[in-house]
Design a binder for these strands. Structure first.
Lengths: 241, 241
DNA sequence: TACGATTATATGTCTAGACATATAAGTCAA
DNA sequence: TTGACTTATATGTCTAGACATATAATCGTA
């Protein structure tokens, strides 16, 4: 029976945060509205300033309010230009849907980086790379085609990994410590090769995700994922939930 | 000459946070690694516990570490399944590129909600709605086609807004207090109508963004944006920046 | 050996102060 | 009116404590 997400954790600063969030979300305090000063909230809730400060700091970190010295704290304009996009590991995504995951390695080549490879990885110098082509399926229906390049100078262990059984995405997730990533999403129509890989018609729409991954300015992998565009959807949700 | 993002703000807790973040991102402290206890960091930095607690709390809020009572704080596994997708206001997006923005209202209808309208808005009962079709262009080249439905029972002011001059997206952004949104991204091929609206060939790939917006369980608007798929790209970036 | 009770400990929250600092607002002179 | 200076004030950071609480580890017992 809780309208607020974590109303069942009745610590004071969370209650203060939830109270304010509630008023912002309902529109009672519209964008630009100055929320009460810290000392006013201290008086209202009968607590110390550090407690309301913690509540307000978290709201500021979540971009719900903006804090300005000497002026006060203000409700920010909704920013639905940025949303959290969930791009799950494909295996996890499929098994989460209760479907059986299938994986098939199509090609694996270890080679000295060509100019095209270096360009794709965004590096000037690269030694060897592994190029992998594979396919993911759900209930034996093609789900996504993957075309990946791994920089072996960053991930030398990848040279001996067995990608015929484990998808490179999963392997990397468990063997590289921490990464940053950039995703680019676009649409194309299937060419001959793509149509065959995904078992769709030539000219059918495809959703493309290009993911470029690095760690501390060091390139790790570049991957292109192709999904049948009419059956696959990416969902990005902003705020709440 | 700073390697760390906000090293120029030398408050202690930010320095502690940056130090730890650095070690995580470089892989020095891999996923699963237990970072020093609060009392150890207190000793190392010669500060009070609240100060290191603030640093660790922010790292936890950013999902970089996980805190477990009695056990300690641990580096989390990289989660590149969630990324921040920037879906800018179209006008802002175009002007940011230094191109001139153009807007053209194609159709506007005020009507009692049909069954299809209610379905699209995800409501059981809706009074009147406004259906809007319009087009955005950059340097006089079609950039995106928009097809929108606004629930007038949630946003009555929209009935009198002049959408022939201001795009409905911008208008809503400035007239509804705060919203939650869900975006669904998919790919289609252009049909006759779409091809004409975007001045592309029939059968050309299109990127589709369906955005559904509400405030406190109250539906505001549902919009479908169509972009030429080969010229438009969405970029989502995770961590760092 | 397995299970239940106890204990130790790291984190979670909170207080009542303090000083620092950016800046809105007011003051005064050119 | 404008610009420079001063002041008041809200936020930013920090301290040295305190008690609460979840839980890993230990111990004792069946």
């Amino acid at each position: 029976m809780s309208l607020v997400t974590d109303a069942d954790k009745p610590t004071l600063y969370k209650r203060i945060r939830a109270d304010i969030e509630q008023r912002i979300l309902t529109g009672e305090w519209p964008p630009g509205h100055r929320i009460p000063f810290e000392h006013e909230l201290v008086a209202r809730y009968g607590c110390s300033r550090m407690t309301v400060n913690k509540a307000l700091s978290e709201l500021a970190q979540a971009d719900l309010i903006e804090r300005r010295r000497r002026a006060g704290s203000f409700v920010r304009r909704p920013q639905h230009q940025s949303a959290v996009l969930k791009i799950a590991d494909i295996r996890a995504e499929i098994t989460a849907l209760g479907r059986t995951y299938g994986y098939e390695l199509i090609g694996r080549k270890l080679r000295a980086a060509t100019a095209a490879d270096r360009d794709r990885l965004g590096v000037k110098k690269a030694g060897k790379v592994i190029a992998i082509t594979c396919r993911h399926s759900a209930d034996n229906v093609p789900f996504a085609a993957e075309d990946r390049l791994i920089d072996l100078s960053s991930v030398p262990d990848a040279a001996t990994a067995d990608f015929s059984r484990e998808p490179p995405g999963s392997w990397l997730l468990h063997h590289v410590p921490w990464t940053e990533a950039e995703h680019t999403i676009s649409a194309i129509v299937a060419d001959d090769r793509t149509a065959e890989a995904l078992d769709i018609a030539v000219g059918a729409p495809c959703l493309v995700i290009d993911r470029y991954t690095w760690r501390s300015a060091r390139t790790i992998t570049a991957v292109r994922l192709l999904y049948p565009g009419d059956s696959h959807r990416l969902v990005a949700r902003f705020k709440g939930g």
